[in-house]
Design a protein around this nucleic acid. Structure first.
Lengths: 183, 183
DNA sequence: AAGTTTGTTAAATAAATTTTTAATAAAGTT
DNA sequence: AACTTTATTAAAAATTTATTTAACAAACTT
């Protein structure tokens, strides 16, 4: 595909392209939209960019860039930068994957824990009411008890996930798994 | 919404429904299709199910159940079970979230690491060629060097992610973060 | 071995999501 | 204060993805 007849400038672009494609595909897999994924991967090789530079570089519409940048900001993978003199907004990608990807997971996991734990609490209350209900037959009571216990057991996972998020946020996990460990 | 006039049987279904909704929504967020997500969440409260039971329970087509079950098997969240006497295939959901969700993440992360590390290796070779190329001007060489170093630095993250997967797979992470830790 | 039941693959439809065009708002400049 | 530039919001179009209908293959029964 890429020939040795390519100029060095072009070879650099091709090399970057391979990494951009891989990063974007990964993000796609995690539910980030194609435009946002491509944008982050592109910005990974840039110091900072304006919306118009993004549009030119990716060949997409400005609103698409605008919403994509915002989504990336929401998950802390892009930060707004101040550039004196230019009235165009400038943005920079978080280049440290430890920071960018971890903030992504922590946010996802926290949402997961909250959502599921809330639902579990509600459901457990319901099951208790069924157990206390005089209209419940013995086998219905038994069923409710069983489901209650199943949910109770599952809570351990969500508490553990919360602990994982905490240890990532405060950096303790890197004492257990060092960042610079040899292969 | 749910009234105390509901029969106990109905209240149980409502309670399960809340948890099913939360689990399915979580899976949705991670890129699992709605049908597969709802199916797993439904199976979480069942001992085992046949394809026809799934279709009836979810009100969806059989091929949809078939492909959904396969996807769930791929990520080890559903196992085929043997039921003597019945010629219908039976399947059971992995009820232990530590196992089901962790196998999901490990698989995703391994794919991510391989894909990105492969791309990085290729790109780094390209950058070396540019650096060695007589046709490259000094500033192009400098640019190639800079990108090469950026990629080199990023490898630490992928190695770390691999270590994380290993420690989850061999259980060592649970010495650092116990499953049963109090709140 | 023919027939029946179950499961899977392929093509078509339907639904949902992403992106764009167009319009509006906000900010800055002269 | 009017004008210009930039960014955002809303509605429309287009793409993609998920699901279903229909056809096929496999496995089991009689």
């Amino acid at each position: 595909m890429s020939e040795s007849t390519d100029g060095p400038k072009l070879k650099i672009e091709e090399a970057k392209g391979k990494v951009i494609g891989a990063i974007a595909e990964t993000m796609d897999l995690y539910g980030v939209t194609p435009a946002a994924a491509n944008l982050y991967a592109t910005m990974y090789f840039k110091d900072q960019m304006t919306l118009d530079e993004m549009r030119t570089e990716l060949g997409m519409s400005k609103p698409s860039m605008s919403t994509s940048v915002r989504k990336l900001q929401d998950i802390d993978m892009v930060k707004k930068t101040f550039t004196r003199g230019s009235r165009k907004h400038t943005y920079a990608a978080e280049k440290n994957f430890f920071r960018s990807f971890m903030s992504f997971y922590c946010q996802m996991w926290e949402r997961e824990v909250k959502m599921n734990l809330d639902a579990i609490e509600e459901a457990q209350e319901d099951f208790i009411n069924v157990i206390k209900d005089a209209a419940s037959t013995p086998d219905i009571v038994a069923e409710a008890k069983q489901f209650y216990d199943q949910l109770e057991e599952s809570k351990a996972y969500y508490h553990w996930l919360n602990d994982l998020v905490d240890s990532i946020r405060n950096g303790e996990i890197f004492e257990f798994l060092p960042k610079d460990k040899k292969e």
